[in-house]
């Protein structure tokens, strides 16, 4: 049988069998038989390759015509059998989960703050985690006799000079002096980073945590500027109006020094366990930069003044996500990290 005859027969057989169908049962099977990848039509088309070159165009056209006719016949019959009731789709199935990574919660908070401060024109600076006694203490007006210098509070590192020992910075404040030396005044900068305290670890104490230092130095910076800026900043962090209060606090590198409290966001100031029934939550230490710190930074305190503040990034992350154990932050526990 020539290919032409075969194709003709194929057409008739297919159309005949289709006519014989009473309902949609068997239709799929038939479709595979004729139109499937290894179906009869495919075989017929493949056979074209073996035909002599001069016959190929003509037979090719025939083959395509047969294919079209059969396909159309299938389409018609599908409509007849009411292919209009498609299989129901379960739209509540979850879909394929895309790859999802996780930013560490402390870094997530850090980023948000960096963006906030950058929008207010602050530089974001970095400083060494292994510091010298000079930058960590002396330049911040923390004298040799100050208890903070004890090995009870500070990790010291072997090496260095006897009079200027190496240590792991206990706060991000040393970068205040480094920034003033590098950039001079006026300056607006924040310094996020890892800090260390010699401290036994428990649910609320860690040897390692994250802070963010802030520094503004310009002409005639005042306490009034400090409070207003802090209020703007806190509104930015908590995304709502926050009430703040300032009270005396002692930090050798600021004068005057303050503790800034915010009205408890949980109870609104009426008193609850979060604010220890005082209505206020201690949030950040701040103050006007001590003239000695400006001097160490090479800035004339008669010409410039400034304010500085410290934010606990670990603490803010814990507040935001209601993390009740600080040790989780450095645990590497996936059940923790994958929640962010």
């Amino acid at each position: 049988m020539s290919l032409k005859e075969e194709l003709e027969q194929l057409r008739q057989r297919a159309l005949h069998e289709l006519k014989g169908l009473k309902d949609s049962s068997g239709l799929a099977e038939l479709e595979v038989k004729y139109l499937g990848r290894k179906g009869e039509l495919a075989r017929g088309l493949k056979a074209l390759q073996d035909v002599v070159a001069e016959e190929r165009p003509r037979l090719g056209e025939l083959a395509n015509q047969v294919k079209r006719e059969v396909e159309e016949a299938f389409a018609t019959i599908k409509q007849k059998f009411g292919n209009g009731t498609p299989a129901p789709i379960d739209v509540t199935l979850p879909g394929i989960p895309p790859l999802r990574g996780h930013l560490h919660p402390v870094l997530a908070v850090q980023r948000e703050l960096e963006e906030l401060f950058r929008s207010m024109g602050f530089m974001v600076l970095d400083g060494p985690e292994l510091e010298s006694e000079f930058y960590n203490f002396e330049a911040l007006n923390i004298p040799a006799w100050h208890p903070a210098r004890d090995t009870q509070d500070t990790f010291y590192v072997k090496g260095g000079e006897p009079k200027n020992r190496w240590l792991l910075r206990t706060h991000t404040s040393p970068v205040q002096v480094r920034a003033l030396q590098d950039y001079g005044a006026p300056i607006r900068a924040i310094v996020p980073g890892r800090v260390f305290r010699y401290e036994a670890t428990d649910a609320s104490h860690e040897t390692t945590f994250w802070q963010m230092e802030g520094l503004v130095v310009d002409k005639d910076i005042s306490v009034s500027h400090l409070i207003a800026t802090m209020k703007a900043l806190l509104t930015g962090i908590f995304k709502r109006e926050v009430e703040v209060r300032l009270r005396p606090g002692y930090f050798p590198f600021v004068e005057p020094g303050f503790e800034l409290d915010i009205k408890c966001l949980v109870c609104g100031g009426t008193g609850c366990s979060v604010c220890k029934h005082s209505g206020w939550v201690e949030l950040l230490p701040c103050g006007l930069v001590h003239p000695k710190v400006l001097e160490y930074g090479g800035v004339n305190p008669k010409e410039y003044s400034g304010f500085a503040f410290g934010l606990g990034l670990s603490r803010l992350a814990m507040m935001r996500y209601k993390i009740d154990d600080i040790r989780l932050l450095l645990s590497g526990d996936l059940r923790f990290l994958e929640q962010f």
């Binding site: 024109g121 530089m123 607006r188 900068a189 306490v223 009270r247 005057p256």
Partner: peptide, 28 residues
């Protein structure tokens, strides 16, 4: 400053935002 201001009352200090130029900060 602290001696006077704390007795006077920090809550009585008016708020004022500092004024800065708009130079974008250098980026590390």
């Amino acid at each position: 400053i602290e001696e006077v201001a704390r007795i006077y009352g920090y809550d009585k200090i008016p708020l004022a935002m500092p004024k800065f130029d708009i130079t974008p900060p250098p980026v590390d």
